[in-house]
Design a protein around this nucleic acid. Structure first.
Lengths: 120, 120
DNA sequence: GCCATTACTTACAAATTTGTATGTATCCCA
DNA sequence: TGGGATACATACAAATTTGTAAGTAATGGC
C-alpha cells in the first residue's frame, strides 16, 4: 500500500499476474478493506468523516489508502468541495456497480462453502 | 502464510472480516498464486513435480504453502501414493469447480474494466 | 555403499502491508 | 488571539508474507 521497490523478485512476479484478467480483477477488490468500503458505498454517497465513523475499527490511514486505491482503479469517485473545513465525498462508479451481481454470486458460494466446510 | 500471532490488532480485525461471506470467499481465492494453481488444475490431475515445472517462476515453498491452503479450504484434493519415490497428486474438488462460472464473469469484468481504464 | 528421485520441511532474510501517533492547512467563530 | 472542524500526510514500528538456500527420508539401481 506504500511505494514499492521496482525490481524485487516479488514485484517482477507480480507483473505476470497482471497479464491475467482474473488476477487483475481480484487485485482490484482484494485489498484488506476494499470490499467493506465498496459495500458501504452501495447506493449512497458518503463523505470521509462518515466513512471514518462507520469503520471505527479501521485506521484512518488505511481508510485513506484504500480509498485512494479504489479511486485509482476507477471504482470510486472522489469529489472535493472547495470549502472550509474541507468536504470530500465518495461514491461508486458505474464500473463498481457492475460488480455487484458477480460479487453476490461469490458471496453465495462463500456461504455455501462455509456451512459445508466448518473448520472448527 | 506462516503461523500468526493470535492477538495483534491485525488478526483481531481479520476476525470481523470472516463474518462476511464475500470476504470469506475472496480470502480463499485471493492468495498470491491460488488462482494460477486453480486454473492449472482445471480439468486435470497433476502431481507436485508437474506443477513445479509449470510454475517455474514460483518458489517451491510458495507452491507448497498455497497448495496446503487450498487443500485446507477444500478447494483442492491431495492424494498421496505410498511409493518410493513418493507420488502426490492434486486435483480440484467439486466446490472449486463451482467457482468457474463466477470467476469467468469476474474475468470478463476485469477485461472490460482494463481496456476502458488504461493506466499508462 | 553411493547416487538419484520425489515431495516436501526448515531457517533465515528481504519485501510488503498495516498500525500508531503526531502534524498540517484553511477559515470561521467566540 | 485561540480554538475547532475536516481531510488528509508523514514518520516510524510491528506484523505478515514471500523469497532463498539448504536439508530430509525412503528406496531402487549401479
Amino acid at each position: 500500500m506504500a511505494t514499492r521497490k521496482v525490481n524485487s523478485t516479488y514485484t517482477r512476479n507480480e507483473q505476470s499476474l497482471f497479464e491475467c484478467d482474473l488476477s487483475y480483477a481480484i487485485n482490484k477488490i482484494g485489498g484488506r478493506w476494499k470490499l467493506q468500503i465498496l459495500s458501504m458505498l452501495e447506493n449512497r454517497t458518503l463523505r470521509f468523516t462518515a466513512l471514518k465513523k462507520e469503520f471505527a475499527f479501521m485506521s484512518e490511514r488505511m481508510l485513506t489508502l484504500q480509498l485512494r486505491a479504489l479511486e485509482q482503479d476507477g471504482l470510486v469517485k472522489r469529489t472535493v468541495y472547495a470549502e472550509v473545513p474541507p468536504r470530500v465525498e465518495y461514491e461508486l462508479t458505474n464500473t463498481a456497480m457492475e460488480l455487484w451481481p458477480i460479487l453476490n454470486q461469490l458471496s453465495q458460494w462463500g456461504s455455501k462453502q462455509r456451512s459445508s466446510h466448518r473448520e472448527l
